[in-house]
């Protein structure tokens, strides 16, 4: 063991003074509490194992055990090495919270950065009826930040008796966030035709104006806008970008619902109701039985027909 180096003071456990004082207090109290019993009951008399006296004795024993544990703990805490470890442990807590806060701040900054970038793109040419380069920067920003900065918190290994329950809950939260990102992306893809339509609609109006054919009825404007929008949607819905967004959204929705069902399954197990999983197993059994009965009925009918007098 390393000896204490001269000139280098050991870190002092912050609660050492308080622990020492409380130890002295409880020692005095325990002595005072045990005195009357010792005075009334002679030491040589056998200990009562039943009755109120025995109960009081168990309570006192419990107190004494707890007190001894406290003594050990405070002694250990007063030990310079332990105090050092405890202080370091406590020092890491702010670090943990700082990291969490940093991740959140970084997310805000990145999203803001993307928004500024996007704002700069306003007015740039919108390619009508093309969806190869859908600008999803803003959506992707949140997705990337979540996956890089936040997701890991849900993947911290869980310990102890409740570890599987906690793990499933964390997984559910993680999948919910992923689904929300995928859903936002899907909604964004759906909104792109509206954006493009506005641009094309404006160009069409300019053309009509040059030709002197500008409509004078609001219905005509609406019909023109609607036709352009419909055309954009028809093109979008057949594009690989849309199919990918659809597949991605549905995939994450499935995952989220499956994990949500797992959490619900855990909750329902504590209630006197059958869970979906149990019901599904029962339903499957019934389904198989029904099929077997139906098949047997058919065979019986065939046999009956075969053995009827008309058939010889």
């Amino acid at each position: 063991m390393s000896a204490e180096q001269p000139g280098k003071s050991q870190p002092e456990f912050p609660l050492a003074d308080w622990m020492k004082q409380s130890q002295e207090f409880w020692t005095t109290w325990m002595r005072a509490a045990s005195q009357p019993r010792e005075a009334v009951e002679p030491q040589e008399s056998p200990r009562r194992t039943t009755g109120p006296g025995a109960a009081r004795g168990r309570v006192q024993e419990g107190w004494e055990t707890a007190f001894r544990m406290w003594q050990s703990l405070s002694a250990a805490a007063s030990d310079p090495t332990s105090a050092d470890a405890a202080v370091k442990g406590m020092e890491t807590l702010p670090d943990f919270y700082m990291k969490l806060a940093q991740a959140g701040w970084l997310a805000v900054m990145k999203i803001q950065e993307r928004m500024v970038e996007k704002a700069g793109k306003i007015g740039q040419k919108t390619e009508a009826y093309h969806f190869e380069a859908i600008d999803q920067n803003l959506i992707n920003a949140w997705k990337e930040i979540y996956e890089e900065e936040f997701r890991q918190f849900y993947q911290i290994p869980q310990l102890g008796l409740m570890r599987y329950y906690q793990e499933r809950f964390n997984e559910c939260m993680d999948r919910m966030n992923l689904f929300q990102a995928a859903f936002s992306e899907f909604l964004y893809v759906l909104s792109v035709p509206v954006e493009k339509t506005s641009k094309v609609f404006q160009e069409k109006l300019e053309e009509l104006q040059l030709e002197g054919k500008i409509p004078d009825k609001s219905r005509d404007y609406y019909q023109l806008w609607l036709r352009i929008l419909e055309g954009h949607y028809m093109t979008l819905f057949q594009s690989p970008e849309y199919l990918e967004a659809l597949r991605n959204m549905l995939g994450h929705l499935d995952s989220f619902i499956a994990s949500k069902n797992s959490v619900l399954q855990d909750v329902l197990q504590f209630l006197p109701v059958p869970t979906n999983k149990e019901m599904d197993e029962l339903i499957k059994d019934l389904h198989v039985f029904k099929r077997r009965v139906r098949e047997l009925e058919r065979r019986v009918k065939t046999l009956e027909k075969g053995s009827s007098p008309a058939n010889g």
């Binding site: 659809l246 597949r247 995939g251 979906n276």
Partner: peptide
């Protein structure tokens, strides 16, 4: 479109999830 979309979806995952 239905024909295109049906090929894109993961039907196993969908049915396993929703019943």
């Amino acid at each position: 479109l239905l024909h295109i979309w049906m090929r894109a979806i993961d039907v196993d995952k969908l049915v396993d999830t929703f019943g």
